[in-house]
Nucleic acid binder design. Sequence first.
DNA 1: GTTCTAGAAC
DNA 2: GTTCTAGAAC
Length: 201
Amino acid sequence: MAAATPSSKRPAPADSSSLKPVKKTHWSQGLLASINDPNLTVESDDRIVIIKDKYPKARHHFLVIPKINIPNLKSLKREQSELLRYMEDQAKVLATKYPQNEFKYGYHAIPSMSQLHLHMISQDFDSPCLKTKRHWNSFNTRYFLDSSEVIRCLEERGMVVTMTPIAGEKLLDMPLKCHKCIYSPQNMPKLKQHLYKHLNN
DNA sequence: GTTCTAGAAC
DNA sequence: GTTCTAGAAC
């Protein structure tokens, strides 16, 4: 790696009087860029891409993303349940590389990022990126929709029934609770300290 | 989704 | 005084 870039070589701040404004992509579109970035890709075939989550909330945290454009759970059609099964199956194939780890497979009810993505996350929740109550509750309340239940709903009802954004916010604001015992910590640092007790190594 | 940080909570 | 959370980001 080269020495620190001299400040004189950094791009100058945009001069709004003379330059055309640069179109920046909104952060919520970040996954669409990740699909085509070979550096982030863990597995890929003609139907899906599996990438590492940019801010993993556990030791092993991946996203399974279909290559065809599917914005969210609401846009799913009944005939796409087979694709969801394929996504879960491929995630479970990847999980065999981590035999000592328990994984969960599911979707966030109200995701922030566009493009459907299946979370595959190890249940240690041992990560410096796990920082907030929202982070915790997004994987450890009903906000986390199990893949198998999403598929069942799509096949039985022809659509995925989730929840309103307000109901989602309520789940994210629930009191903290350990996913393996009855401990209800007052704050995130106490939860993170407690989680080490449930680790095998 | 994250970063930053003011001020609440301790 | 320090830790921790929660709201704005043009």
